[in-house]
Design a protein around this nucleic acid. Structure first.
Length: 408
RNA sequence: GCGUAGAUGGUGGAGUGGUCUAUCACAACAGACUGUAAAUCUGUCGCCUUCGGGCUUCGUAGGUUCGAAUCCUACUCUACGCA
């Protein structure tokens, strides 16, 4: 089936909607959470496990697969989905985020979602000292980006065209235009300059995609999403959404480094401007609370490394908030990770998993990753269901009250 | 019984007259993690603290010295070797 997006129901009084994205490799019931498999693997899991925990699609990364093993080899496999033996829909990110994480954010302690306090401190710090000796691994110009490999330090160059060529070779059903993800520390003038450039890159991405035609790896037509930027500035966000919305993209990604508040505001500004009939993906978000604000403001799909990364570092989601299984209190805790969830990991005690963590056994990462992804995928699926049932707001209140009881 | 080597904080192991509460690693105890430079990173890790600092530690007991984990003596214990 060709790429197509259908809206089944709208959440009254909000920008939220329930829908289905049809792709050549199957459907995605939206809203949906898409697990991240950066290097064509959801870390610590087999694709059978990823499928069984309820994932509908996976998202891989252009930058990382380009560096290793190289898009040529992936193409020989018939695309990254075939290479990793994943049979459902797939996404690839353009490498634009690496412009941020290896450039502006490199060594700065600035992350995808920062608190306002951290940003304030960073901005002050930036004024106070010269930044000349900062070892950025990225150089941005009008045509593209030079960047240094994180593997061996060698220099490479991405342009919008190059990113399209690589993503055609990787063969995902849905892929993203090459954008510049800016630092939240960047001032208005820079954000403005950056979105203008990102818009020019978007046009070039679209042109190159049209020129390339179907994926060389899969022989299938791929869907291209434009990526909206603009930092925390309402006029820039709206301008970016309008500009890209007028272009012939199949859908839209919303990018950027956020503060917690932006997820409720920036996303709304953008989705108010974007064409309603096309799917929107919120890049790199999120935490449980983020899904509610994202979905209410018009987001259809999410991806985030958090469930798998925190899992490898010993943290698990529960209905009562995150728990850190390294903590002494779990050494003899005979409960499963979340007693109210029945899944593959339910028969393992917290005590056992704490033991695996303490002895650096790989299985800890696997079990917690399965649990966390299942928790998040199910949460978004439950939100979807509640939207269809008309019980969304009740579901939201109950969930958030319990999960964030210490804060709310 | 004789000889040799050695005894350092939860563990291993540096330090061999002052800058030593004592490098470092591990363990332990917490924290962070949002388009994955991440099975990673950060902090604490003798006791007390009004966080300025105060007090007590390097097998035990003495001694030398202005000053000892470091030198001397005795003792205790451990390892290896010889009987």
């Amino acid at each position: 089936m060709e790429f197509k997006f259908e809206i089944e129901k709208k959440l009254v009084g909000t920008l939220g909607r329930v829908g289905t994205i049809h792709t050549p490799h199957g459907d995605i019931q939206t809203p949906a959470f898409i697990p991240v498999g950066t290097k064509a693997t959801v870390k610590a899991l087999t694709v059978e496990q990823v499928k069984d925990l309820g994932a509908q699609a996976v998202l891989a990364n252009t930058y990382h697969l380009y560096l290793e093993p190289g898009e040529g080899l992936v193409q020989k496999h018939g695309g990254f989905a075939k290479m990793m033996h994943w049979q459902g829909p797939t996404f690839t990110d353009s490498g634009g985020f690496q412009v941020f994480s290896l450039g502006a954010a490199y060594g700065e302690g600035v992350s995808k979602v920062a608190t306002n306090e951290v940003l304030a401190a960073k901005i002050t710090e930036q004024k106070d000292e010269e930044k000349s000796d900062r070892k950025t691994k990225v150089k941005i110009d009008e045509d593209g980006v030079d960047f240094q490999s994180v593997i061996d330090g060698s220099w490479h160059r991405f342009t919008p065209e190059r990113s399209m060529q690589i993503q055609h070779a990787l063969g995902a059903d849905i892929f993203f235009a090459f954008d510049e993800c800016t630092s939240p520390l960047a001032p208005y003038e820079y954000q403005k300059k950056a979105i203008d450039r990102t818009h020019r890159w978007a046009k070039r991405s679209l042109d190159e995609h049209t020129k390339l035609g179907v994926s060389q790896a899969t022989g299938r037509k791929q869907a291209l999403y434009g990526v909206v930027q603009g930092g925390s500035f309402e006029d820039l966000r709206r301008e970016s959404a309008r500009t890209l919305g007028a272009m012939d993209f199949d859908g839209y990604g919303i990018g950027g480094s956020f503060t917690k508040d932006d997820i409720g505001t920036a996303v709304r500004w953008v989705c108010e401007e974007l064409p309603e009939g096309k799917p929107r993906h919120l890049l790199g978000i999120g935490e449980p609370i983020d899904f509610f604000y994202g979905i209410e403001n018009g987001i259809d799909t999410f991806d985030c490394v958090s469930p798998t990364r925190i899992a490898r570092n010993g943290a698990a989601y529960t209905f009562d908030g995150r728990i850190n299984l390294h903590n002494a209190k779990y050494v003899e805790d005979m409960l499963p990770l979340e007693p109210e969830i029945l899944n593959y990991t339910s028969s393992y005690t917290r005590s056992y998993i704490a033991h695996l963590l303490r002895s650096n056994e790989m299985l800890a990462a696997t079990l917690i990753s399965i649990h966390n992804l299942h928790f998040i995928v199910s949460l978004v699926a439950s939100i979807r269901k509640s939207m269809l049932d008309g019980t969304y707001f009740e579901f939201k209140e109950n969930f958030l009250k319990r999960y964030y009881k210490d804060i709310v």
